[in-house]
Design a protein around this nucleic acid. Structure first.
Lengths: 193, 193, 193, 193
DNA sequence: GATGAATGAGAGTTCATTCAT
DNA sequence: AATGAATGAACTCTCATTCAT
């Protein structure tokens, strides 16, 4: 019953999400991750260079899938506003349904060393890119104001969603994250129009 | 010769801002702070309980002053929109002129342990409170839409400003942070109206 | 296709000489040797018990061949002084032409654990024996002084040659090792006469 | 009862000699040295950078004292042969009376990493220098043969003494090391004359 | 209050060795 | 015989914190 190649890689990443979410990045020891994954400490180092590498790989994994799936959802949208709504909805839905991933994304990932930072930037960029594309589209269609600075608008949109998620993660989660989609959408789309 | 009481406390906090900004919270050793402050390692422990305590005190100090001064600026505003503009302006102006403080606020402070978290929440809350007061005022004056959820609007406003500052901190700072006041204000105020 | 039995044994030993010479015994990992030999890590353990065993086998191999060939050269000598000269010549010639082996012999082999020590002593003893035979012969023929302590003389001879080789190994090798044969021979033979 | 400055440095070095001699350099853990010295593990790192640094410092200490004292003994010699005799005598006497130091010098020190190697070379050089001075003096006084290559002669002398010491260290020490002074001297001086 | 040498628990990482395939 | 993924014991080094002076 040989494990499929690459399977252990994923087992370790899954264990890392759980452990980082539970104890925080800096409090997590490699042996915690290994224990959670049911492998030996040394095995972790066969698949990853070090703790930082795990955190980065984790995020790159999540983010790559995130952007890919979001792009495929956007493909079904009939207009730009629907696209903006989809971005907000997908973002809240995805993180709202995976509190552990959300905690890692919102909190642990910000334990920024320069290296981590670089490993994080690139996958994030493609999400930023996607948001900016939608804004540009809206401007081209005269749906959004021409004088809007795309870059700044993207920061507003991402910053707003991100803050909403962070607040939810830090809270005792007495509400559904995705309930905030509509108020968020209204505030943002009005800002753009 | 006799130093005024509390002076050394401030010397250490100033040294901590510098050192945290330069090396990051986790990479900063107490001896680095002590060295920068020109005191012995042990002296740090006369004024603070531990490393975490320094970071929290730091933030509480900054935040208390921040909110106090912001409130006094708001007192001079003639209407609600001007107040919103002042919040954005003051936030960007303050952090834009103190890159080290900005780095600590935006990055290092997020190295959250539960304890730090609580130490941070309280002073932040009073800033949130202040933002929400302005939103409520706008709603009362029918300047802003009635159906807006104040809490969510506050998250959007704070999240947007915060993201803008973080991007600037992480960048090579090729632009003035306060240049972003106007586009930010436009996007946010339109969202509320 | 079928490799001759024992061939892989030699492949591994050859790889070990190279790797020990390049990186030193303690810095060499089994996987380095395996890689250099083009076999799997585990294969090394089919042929050798452990890392120490490789080093010892290596030396025993070299030393056995060394003494055997030296004995056959000595068989052609016409007198005792010529034998002494041949010993020096052969020693310098052999190691001088194989810098990697020389490095292992002079340096890496001295990373002595008790076990290695014993594995080394025995093959060395037969070389010592050979030198002592020549000294005894010279004494019997009244060519060398009677009061000379054979054991001590052997240590002087071996120690001198060994030091000369070690210096060469540690140097950037700007000279031929065998150039030192004559001066070495003169000093040693005069000491014996 | 403040310990004199630098005292703990010496305590650690003394402990290191004992421990290296007992267990060998590579088998010795920092905690072994610390334990033997009666200090905490971390304390070792206040005084030394790492294990290598301890070994090098150790040798530099010993060698510096060795050469200094040997030079002062040589000052009392009435002729060159007496100087040669003194070198041999002092070398055998010093190491013969300190078996632990001898073991470290003869065996453990040869665990050569490049760094250790460099740290060792310099202090050794001054010993080599001293031997060569004596040989040169003998040549100038026509006591020793003119055609002798000083460098090679030094290697013969040092190599011979060194081998004698190593043999003794590796043995069960059933004889006094300094008993070998006379036979060694006779062999070496005759070689030079 | 101030000092800074000393502490020692703690964590990341390595790698010789094993063994199921 | 050969493989190489997995193991886990072992060890170095760091640094927040203490406390005698």
């Amino acid at each position: 019953m040989a494990k499929r190649s690459g399977e252990k890689n994923q087992v370790i990443l899954d264990a890392a999400v759980k452990t980082f979410a539970r104890s925080g990045y800096h409090r997590t020891r490699i042996s915690d991750i290994a224990g959670q994954a049911g492998v030996a400490d040394g095995t972790v180092y066969i698949y990853f260079n070090n703790k930082e590498d795990i955190l980065i790989s984790l995020f790159q994994n999540l983010m790559t899938r995130f952007v890919k799936e979001l792009r495929s959802e956007l493909a079904h949208c009939r207009n730009t506003n629907e696209k903006l709504e989809t971005i907000i909805d997908y973002h809240l839905r995805t993180l709202g349904s995976k509190p552990e991933q959300a905690r890692v994304t919102q909190i642990e990932l910000r334990q920024i060393d320069q290296n981590i930072n670089e490993g994080i930037s690139k996958p994030l960029m493609s999400y930023f890119q996607l948001i900016e594309e939608v804004i540009e589209e809206g401007k081209k269609q005269a749906l959004y104001r021409q004088e809007i600075d795309t870059r700044t608008a993207r920061k507003v949109i991402f910053g707003a969603i991100d803050e909403v998620v962070t607040c939810w993660v830090m809270s005792t989660k007495p509400y559904q994250l995705s309930n905030l989609k509509n108020p968020l959408f209204e505030l943002l789309v009005k800002g753009l129009q």
